[in-house]
Design a binder for these strands. Structure first.
Lengths: 351, 351
DNA sequence: GTGAAAGCGCTAACAT
DNA sequence: ATGTTAGCGCTTTCAC
């Protein structure tokens, strides 16, 4: 018993396969009576149109895709490490993008195909996704640039976050530098702090680097000394590393800083805990800030001042860009920057 | 410039289309040198295999699907209502299932296609999904039963939560009754409470009904009076309704209850707020419990005692079931019940 | 290890 | 309003 096809339905309802096809594509173009007969036959047979065949014949799928890293989620591991109970409570970066994309895709009549990247090979998951969608979004550092190079010649791809590795792609980033600059300015101007240190991530994290640049700019604007490099770098930007960084900074000889700015929330939360252990009061003796706006930041004591990323909007915008490009293949590639907002909470002395 | 096909790649690399195909399906079966030549040509041409054509020819997609309600998420609306800042922090029911399914699907080499249901018509989103996957999961009350009836004759479908509407489908539920029974038992035996009231949902919510049944069982087991019906029912089970229910219950003449058990967390949280407004101390004068295990429950004051659903496991199990059935079409339909766990927090007098 | 040929189930002209 | 006829781009025997 192989699956019934248009032929089976056509035969059973006494019409041609073209009519069966029409019933499913443009019901109004078929006389009501005929339509009913076809639908009836389809029901009896258990007919479900093959998406593959339709896609092949019509050259569209009605599906948009998303490729995200296995877990380049800064949160993923750190959560388990921190509080296993929280694990299923906290939204990951990818969860939010998925949500944003799904909603937007739905509005445009598309479904969403999602896949985390695995290892390479000509038959990687990316290739699978690419072959099954009308266009897709890629989180930075998920897909080898060379693969993207090839794929993006055949269908719309939008790059999310990270650097613009391929210049003919649409590209969306959040205002990392702006956000950190504004946050730093707040510490300097509104809280009167002078001795600030920035804890960064790996040099190959474009986000962390951009945030550091924002920090530098704010220092320059305020006439403070401008460091060439972050005071410290961590590799994974997790809580444990943030904690170690905070302690290392306390133990440095010379004047103790008044504020520690971390390249992400995870590290900042780790630092908060380390400082508490060492009896350093936050924010009285030390201001602490993060970046991202993770839920955990609202719960910790003191609550964490940070810069919130509009992650869901990232997903929504990705869909908009894809849909646009699908209807206007010739459009110039765009590069969007989504605004971020400083969230002032207790750890800097506000709230 | 239409997209290059196997023919283009074959021509350019001087092999047959069969060999090109082999390079992508079973690389080892092609001489390394030949393979390189093909891959090279593919790269130059920007060749991406068409998932549709592959699917059509091979009769499989390598994709699993999930259909979920537009927002039958009990949380979705209530969140916005409660705390807009929390909106992007809180995982929805569907987010968690998606996460669970994606992970499990990935392990088995599948990608995941997700779509929220819209209105009907022969060309509903469900049909789209159904035609593009090897099998899929459906959240209860998402897809008209009759559609499912037809579709499930042609590919594996697993039903998530809700009643078992179609008996030849695999089906996964959480132990609603067990959880509520255990929770109720805890209040009775460990806290010595006697006057308990249960606030339910609409009669057509199988989950809420099952929870009420658990409540009844615990009452019976303890030799307490067994109500035929919940003390009160709400329609949407949202916070505002929970608050109103709590107040209505306080205002009833007769002895005030010692504990209010709500059919979900949202209502319980609303009740907590209402009770605070009325000056009723929780848990000293009134114990309050929920069901679901939403993140908000950990944050409210006092923290909410509840029953946690293993939502992510629901998604993982769904994939396992689909994969199983894909490799063993003949297997009898199964009905799994996932265990839940009582989470004792402050609102019942623990923690 | 590689090639030739026959579909897979549909849509898209074009007829009628 | 409905039927006819080509493909869409691949996988799959079966040869060689």
């Amino acid at each position: 018993m192989s699956a019934p096809t248009v032929y089976d339905v056509a035969e059973r309802s006494g019409v041609s396969i073209a009519t069966v096809s029409r019933v499913y594509r443009t019901p109004e173009s078929v006389r009501a009576q005929t339509r009913e007969r076809v639908l009836e036959a389809a029901r009896e047979l258990g007919y479900v149109p093959s998406g593959n065949a339709r896609g092949l014949a019509s050259r569209t799928t009605g599906v948009l895709g998303l490729c995200f890293p296995d877990y380049a989620d800064p949160d993923a591991e750190a959560d388990a490490e921190a509080d296993s109970d929280a694990d299923d409570a906290v939204m990951l970066y990818s969860d939010q993008i998925i949500r944003g994309m799904e909603r937007a895709a739905r509005r445009h009549g598309y479904a969403l195909l999602i896949a985390a990247s695995l290892e390479g090979g000509p038959e990687s998951l990316v290739a699978k996704v690419a072959g099954r969608v009308d266009g897709f979004a890629v989180l930075a550092q998920t897909v080898p640039t060379e693969d993207l190079e090839v794929i993006s010649r055949r269908l719309p791809v939008v790059m999310l976050a990270g650097p613009r590795e391929i210049d003919h792609l649409d590209h969306i980033v959040v205002a990392n530098a702006d956000g950190e600059r504004e946050l730093t300015r707040h510490l300097i101007e509104d809280h009167g702090l002078r001795r600030l240190v920035f804890v960064g991530g790996d040099t190959d994290s474009p986000d962390a680097e951009a945030r550091f640049r924002g920090f530098q700019e704010a220092c320059r604007d305020a006439g403070l000394p401008v460091p060439d490099e972050p005071a410290l770098r961590t590799t994974m930007m997790k809580q444990a590393e943030g904690a170690r960084a905070a302690e290392a900074l306390l133990d440095r000889r010379g004047e103790r800083p008044e504020a520690m700015l971390f390249a992400n929330d995870q590290m900042a939360v780790g630092a908060l805990r380390a400082l508490a252990r060492r009896g350093v009061r936050v924010p009285q003796e030390m201001a602490v800030t993060g970046f991202d706006g993770i839920p955990l930041g609202r719960i910790v004591q003191p609550s964490l001042t940070t810069v919130r990323q509009p992650i869901r909007r990232l997903g929504e915008q990705a869909v908009e860009l894809l849909v646009q490009r699908l209807s206007d293949t010739g459009r110039e590639p765009v590069s969007l920057t989504l605004p971020v907002s400083v969230v002032r909470r207790a750890s800097c002395g506000c709230g």
